[in-house]
Design a protein around this nucleic acid. Sequence first.
RNA 1: GCCCUGGUAGCUCAGUUGGAUAGAGCAUCCGCCUCCUAAGCGGAGGGUCGCAGGUUCGACUCCUGCUCAGGGCGCCA
Length: 570
Amino acid sequence: MNIKHFLDQTFTESLSSLAGSDTPGIVKQAQRVEFGHYQANGVMGAAKKIKTNPRELAQQLISTLDPETFTTEVAGPGFINVHLRTSFIASELNKLREDALLGVVPVEQTKIVVDYSAPNLAKEMHVGHLRSTTIGDAIVRILEFLGQDVIRANHVGDWGAQFGSLLAYMDRQSQKGESLSTELKDLEKFYQAASALFKSDEEFAKTARGYVVHLQNGDPKCLELWQQFIDESIRHSQEVYEKFDITLTRDDIRAESAYNDDLPIVIQELGEMQGLLVESEGAKCVFFDEFKGKDDKPLPAIIQKSDGGYPYMATDLAAARYRTRVLNADKVLYVVGGEQLLHLRQVFAVAGAAGYIQDNQEFRHLPFGMVLKADGSRFKTRDGADVKLIDVLDEAINRAFALVSEKNPSLAESERQEIAKVVGIGAVKYAELSKNRTTDYIFDWDTMLSFEGNTAPYLQYAYTRIRSIFRRASVEALEGEIELVEEVEIRLGLKILQFPEAIESTLEDYQANVLCNYLYELSGVFNTFYEQCPVLALDNPTSRLLICELTSRVLKQGLSLLGITTVEQM
RNA sequence: GCCCUGGUAGCUCAGUUGGAUAGAGCAUCCGCCUCCUAAGCGGAGGGUCGCAGGUUCGACUCCUGCUCAGGGCGCCA
């Protein structure tokens, strides 16, 4: 059950009948403990609308309620403070024990494509991919938890001019007798070597350009080389996903090149739309009044370049078309950097005009900010030394290993390694997810790999504390009921019941940090409870054990929705 | 020049359809391990919410102007 919904409905109904028209109760979680558990803020606005005294209206409203579950009081200019009865909280908690979804109400199933991660296969994954990958994976997990039919779409870059120099370099190295798998072991170095050669060696550059043409014309030898490279690169990215505990698999890849055959069809279909596709300076473009470039000139969406080539606008249109027509998606979410805002707006606009997006289908861009270096400059993506994602993960695991070895030296090394993996990876993911998606952030090892305060290890640690209690409790089955006595028990109980509200507001704007925040608060309240309320010292610890169990279930579930795992001890 | 983001404590960031005294973490300082894991808990200091107007009973939140920072703006992705 969603308590906020329940209260909001109650107050909205009551207020609407008093005001004579639809009037929202505006129920929120109370911001201060002295204001109770929830507060209804709708009275002031309603009173103004019907020109009456807000406090009187509030009084009138609460007299219409017959609350078995909560008590109310009017406060300030016309707030209504809601105090849930302890018995109500306890009975809801007892119900929750049987609920696999922990109070979350499943939604009506729709098909949702989530486009995320999308590394460029020419290179190794670097910190720039952190955001899309982590955020996208969390969104996917949350949607699936709610029972949605989710399709992961890893729109990897595997086509284009840059592959010319890579293939040329591959060819050259293999002629030198170098083993290809050794060569490609470090994709990053390989890419840099190839692009350096492209810049410095005119002969090589010429060969490379030739390879681009051959590749596009479907030359078998070229395609074979390309395929080898792509396979190797995908192996690299899968390795990263596996280490990073990302749910993407090879099957989720639908690469840019997969749309090659669709590109002429897109041109043809756009051409059939009256007046949509126009030629400008030799390129096939779509113009909309809403898009203006420099000097107020109309800005084209270039679908086909003057040399006949297809820019990524075309591929993205083909992908949009595929997602609605073949996959039959109700919703498509693009977890793509904010700098693509204009591009995606154009994609959506053209796709809409072309009929690739119907009115009942929603396309939405979920932008995120850039990862910056400590000096505020951005990470390069074309060449230059980026921080490799795999290195970040390894460093995180190493630091976590050192820490767990210091804190808990008695654990076996294999166990410490397992813990280090879970804690290190969790820390990296949480550092990313707990921030607002849209703003840029500065990549800093120490901030990202911190294990204190509002971090994943804090949440994981709260979980292990609970597990530790159960290890010592040696109870088989918990028989009995939850009874709330101490103030912090009530606070913890209510927090547990607010899990559905956290999930709901997380999905309002697909902001994982809302869920992070909730779990952090839950852990915080639990830690207070842990200090103040001994469990095993009681003659009958059942109620507190049950509270602990529910807390651990919500923590584990919530973390797993973020893609973070838990351990029994750390 | 135009468009999009953002500016909140020394640092990193929360702040949910406008609500009561703007909150965390890190860092600093003070307390707490004969007691279920101290990766923890309790407490202290630290703010003209970029600036100026406006709307409102009420503005960090909405509107306008200004300012600063970043991004984007015809054949790279």
